[in-house]
């Protein structure tokens, strides 16, 4: 199987695709077995959060504020996925995501649940279908408190505090993003 490739450079390399069969062959014993099918660090939400760290601006006294101090995380969201095989041709896909956080954003932990089924149109081919759903894992950006001196103190989008947008309006541009909630995956494999 091949996962849809939307990995980022930095963390795509960290992705591991494992198919480790735990337990005996289900075809022989019909026992419920669980396989670790994927360990993956990073996601498009992680990358998006990391993108928020680019840039900065000067305060009124000229001192530089780098966004990196607010949007740098020491830990990158990691997803671990498992397949619990129920029959020879079906199983439950499930997994967890650790989430990540920095001072001004958070990616919440996530849970993934779905199923996988497959059929063999011919002796050397496999057609598989999986559907997974993810709960949690939202990326949410936190506001800052900006002191504009005589002009007042406002809750603002940290990144837009020095721009032309009215302070209260900057909050409209706080990033709130959700991961893929539902993934449908159809795969046809021919072995020769």
């Amino acid at each position: 199987m091949r996962e849809r490739s939307n990995n980022r450079d930095g963390f795509g390399a960290a992705a591991l695709l494992l198919c480790v069969v735990v337990g005996a062959s289900p075809a022989m014993t019909q026992e419920v077995t669980t396989s670790l099918v994927n360990i993956h660090q990073g996601s498009w939400l992680s990358d998006r959060a990391r993108g928020l760290a680019n840039g900065g601006y000067e305060l009124q006294d000229g001192s530089w504020v780098s966004f990196n101090r607010w949007y740098h995380s020491n830990w990158v969201d990691m997803q671990v996925d498992f397949l619990t095989q129920l029959t020879e041709n079906s199983g439950i896909l499930w997994g967890v995501g650790t989430g990540e956080r920095a001072e001004k954003y958070r990616i919440a932990p996530s849970l993934k649940l779905g199923f996988l089924t497959q059929t063999h149109p011919s002796l050397n081919s496999t057609l598989s279908l999986s559907v997974t759903s993810t709960v949690g894992g939202n990326l949410s950006e936190k506001p800052c408190v900006a002191d504009y001196g005589e002009l007042g103190t406002y809750s603002v989008n940290c990144r837009l505090a020095a721009g032309e947008t009215a302070p209260e309006d900057t909050l409209k541009y706080l990033v709130n993003a959700t991961p893929e909630r539902l993934r449908l995956w159809l795969n046809y494999r021919v072995t020769f």
Partner: peptide, 11 residues
């Protein structure tokens, strides 16, 4: 203009 639009402090 850029400094006039910028905060004195932010946290």
């Amino acid at each position: 203009l850029s400094r006039a639009l910028a905060p004195v402090a932010i946290h």
